[in-house]
Write a protein that binds this DNA or RNA. Sequence first.
DNA 1: CTGTTAGCGCATTCAA
DNA 2: TTGAATGCGCTAACAG
Lengths: 330, 330
Amino acid sequence: MATLKDVARLAGVAVSTASYALNHSTKVAPQTAKKVFKAAKTLNYQKNGIARDLKRNKTETILLILDNLAGPFYSELVRGVQDTLQSLNYGLIACSSMGGITSTAARFLAERRADGAIILSFNLSDQEIEQAASKDFPIVVLDRLAMTHESIMSVLVDNKSGGYEAAKHLIDLGHRDIAYINGPLDARDNLQRRKGFELAMKESDLEVHPKWMLQGGFTRQGGYLATKMMIMQGKLPTAIFAANDEMAIGAMNALKEAKIDVPEDVSVVGFDDIEMARYTSPLLTTVSQANYDIGSLSAHLIYRSITEEIAKKDYIMPTELIVRDSAKRL
Amino acid sequence: MATLKDVARLAGVAVSTASYALNHSTKVAPQTAKKVFKAAKTLNYQKNGIARDLKRNKTETILLILDNLAGPFYSELVRGVQDTLQSLNYGLIACSSMGGITSTAARFLAERRADGAIILSFNLSDQEIEQAASKDFPIVVLDRLAMTHESIMSVLVDNKSGGYEAAKHLIDLGHRDIAYINGPLDARDNLQRRKGFELAMKESDLEVHPKWMLQGGFTRQGGYLATKMMIMQGKLPTAIFAANDEMAIGAMNALKEAKIDVPEDVSVVGFDDIEMARYTSPLLTTVSQANYDIGSLSAHLIYRSITEEIAKKDYIMPTELIVRDSAKRL
DNA sequence: CTGTTAGCGCATTCAA
DNA sequence: TTGAATGCGCTAACAG
């Protein structure tokens, strides 16, 4: 690998001059610059980014930490981060926190191989995150309880209000018997959504029947099985609220298989507004969380924290009920 | 940020001693080591990974380049890479090549911010890739024509043979009228799969009817529409071979909607063996490409290229027909 | 076992 | 406008 020194030597100039030239500094004479560029080309010179980073003490790239690079994750969110950083001329690298302390994420975090991080991961402890954060290494955590650290900002979705809206919608449509399909019971988003659901029910003096409080683990298969089980047990609710769209789709499949029409016989509402929700039949009524915006906001927050002094602030993003065809008036 | 020097000073030892201690070198006395660790702890010292990389001239991380971090990509493949590198104690970072020359991928490639790369991306030119490759920066390209460069290895799927097997399966089941749903016409994998399909047809002296040569763009929606159109035109084939599972699922949906039973009335075969293929009803017969293995192999290849001298070699991975329930004897 | 020292490749200050 | 020299933070060879 040719280094700057080699280029300088071949061009017959000093290293500094070569550096200036290659960085398009105006203070080097066009003549000289040309010589340098020619030398660089013949040597096939590529600047060593690592050395540059060390010297400049910044990398101009942001780290995105996910539980698992192999998904599933919210692709819209990643897209928001990606687009935004690109427009800001910052790089984005993603890595997984799988493997805990030995994971690439932990390493990159501890060793500061980026200028900041966006964390959408649950297998990293608050402590590890706090350890890494500092004024010149800001962190944005997503879907995680806010932290008090000065350099850690949090943006999360108003899951509770989303759950509330979805339930309210069903209640307003005249439904009284509503089943809820849970995601993993230790998932914060599931719990929050359920809280919203329960609040709406309570406000209307409606009971949540224990046998209609199902488990679906956030997977399509889980929603399918939970619904199937409910069907086999006989008495059905008039509506099902699944804590995410995948489970809602599973539920619809189970219903369809049992010749139970959606929404004629049973209404179904999901949560997330995944792409697929626009392709199911009937089209899925669901709650949308502006994931793209969340990603974009996070990227902006990180960027601003790096480039200017901004006051720490946490954000709660609103949700929106998307009324389609899978829930109808009773 | 405290540096090694600070730690050394506080501990009252030389920088080198501090370095040795923190790297668990055996040649430092337990006493001294303890002092160093204490100093490090009180200063909240974190080693600067960039400085370390520069000095050691290696990063122990591999770069995975994707067209778009926000998917879609083969998650099994990524999982294979991820697991393998983790077991080899190498880090993995992923980045996108979107944005061409200004993309993070291009930057990281040119500036050698990793020890090697696995490229699963089509918006990077052969030239850019060749530019970056070298003996100490090996590259594995996936699903891309092999390149002659000494340090670029290629692993690709035997799409043609997979297409052949799928078609052969349908023919062996007695089907004569078989439709083919294409992916994007400029996608190499689609073309190869089609070639295999056409070969099988030809071998059995069967015609590929032009009106049964459909376009589905590799999306579920595309498969759905193509099939819908075919249904509306009247005469149906007895079998449909979709160039990927997404389209096959779309096709099954269209068929189902039109009350055409799969596989009673029409057989359907897909390609990829995505997870969903195990949840459709009927279960989807398809062609599996061992994506996990491909990822794992790629990671091993990169690793070995870095750690030992290995001869360049290109790999073609076999496919396997997975017979499930969506295709039956005519 | 510990300390001194010399770079890794680059950006940048200071002097010419 | 150019060059010489310094140092980013770390590792490792070498000397003691």
